[in-house]
């Protein structure tokens, strides 16, 4: 029985965004990462090939993280003490990108400062050739105080700076525009809020191909269904041609899942939860894969084992074989 396979042909597509710049391109990265460009829903190869596979970013904390799960501390060991070493380890493990996360603390437990921040970024850039996403601690004034000098000090590197949020985007966008960087916009699990922030940022003159969005996803068991649907809706709108939703999506299953009790806590939990470390990795990888199916272009992970598994899944999903 001949069956006509329904193929969607969409008027729109996701923007293609390149992160990082090599020596020739005015930066110092040994490789760049290109994401986006989808013309179909995720992995519908019978319609269109996946132009750029989803990539995996590993999160590196600028100062040894105080609140990470023991499972993660054990997995990374002393690497965690030095962001440069850590970033190098991520690259060796097969990461595509490094997300350098600043907290409120700088060197010797003092408050984070511009000098410290620029210093760490430089060290990390020296130790790894991967493109970088650099995120402030999430407090407007502090974010601006470190991101602007970082942007200035790394002009031309096409770093992704973040987080831009509705109440605090002007300074970061301006710094990115002045120094050939990109920005990451983050909005709380809502299609409209995501679009609105994108409109505000592009209204400042920032081209769309220099923005990546994080629509906020929640973790498995902690609201992933909302994030999942918001992502599906954003991607559908993008394909339908709504320019303000055509941004590649970066999501953070690592941050989201490793703060849940299931991943963070090893003692005094029910037997039905099973073995701790494996559970933590499952929590992270299941979240990541669900979000990849919903359209994620970048997943930011924490556990090295998760990197291996999600990488394999992505490879399988993007293999050009058709059904």
């Amino acid at each position: 029985m001949p069956v006509e396979i329904p193929k969607d042909s969409w008027p729109g597509s996701v923007n293609t965004v390149t992160l990082g710049a090599t020596g020739d391109q005015g930066g110092s990265r040994t490789s760049t990462v290109t994401i986006g460009g989808e013309q179909s829903l995720p992995f519908m190869h019978f319609e269109n090939p996946t132009p750029h596979r989803p990539v995996i970013a590993m999160e590196v904390a600028a100062a040894r993280p105080a609140d990470w799960s023991a499972v993660l501390l054990e997995a990374w060991g002393s690497t965690l003490d030095d962001p440069a070493v850590w970033a190098r380890a991520c690259e060796d493990a097969g990461a595509d990108l490094i997300v350098l996360q600043f907290g409120l603390k700088g060197s010797d437990d003092g408050p984070v400062s511009a000098e410290f921040a620029v210093e760490v970024v430089k060290e990390v850039m020296d130790s790894t050739g991967l493109p970088l996403v650099v995120l402030g601690p999430g407090q407007a004034e502090i974010d601006n105080s470190i991101l602007v000098p970082i942007a200035d000090a790394t002009k031309g590197e096409r770093i992704v700076l973040g987080l831009c949020e509705e109440g605090n985007y002007r300074t970061i966008v301006a710094a990115a525009m002045a120094n050939d960087h990109l920005v990451l916009g983050k909005t709380p699990m809502d299609v409209n809020l995501a679009k609105q922030l994108n409109i505000l940022m592009t209204d400042m003159g920032l081209p769309l191909d220099r923005i990546v969005m994080d629509p906020t996803t929640g973790a498995l068991g902690y609201g992933i269904e909302y994030g999942y649907s918001v992502m599906e809706r954003l991607r559908l709108a993008a394909l339908q041609g709504d320019a303000m939703t055509q941004l590649p999506m970066l999501v953070t299953p690592g941050v989201e899942t490793w703060k849940t009790k299931e991943s963070k806590v090893g003692a005094g939990i029910p037997d039905e939860w099973g073995e701790w470390a494996e559970r933590g990795v499952n929590w992270e990888t299941l979240t990541a894969v669900a979000l990849i199916e919903a359209g994620a272009d970048v997943v930011v992970l924490r556990h090295p084992q998760s990197l291996v598994r999600v990488r394999a899944a992505i490879a399988e999903l993007t293999a050009s074989e058709t059904a």
């Binding site: 809502d190 299609v191 409209n192 809020l193 679009k195 609105q196 409109i199 303000m244």
Partner: peptide, 15 residues
């Protein structure tokens, strides 16, 4: 709620 958040913009999220 959807319609509301999308209208919480000048003039509207969907210009």
């Amino acid at each position: 709620y959807e319609a509301f958040t999308s209208a919480m913009f000048l003039p509207h999220t969907d210009l």
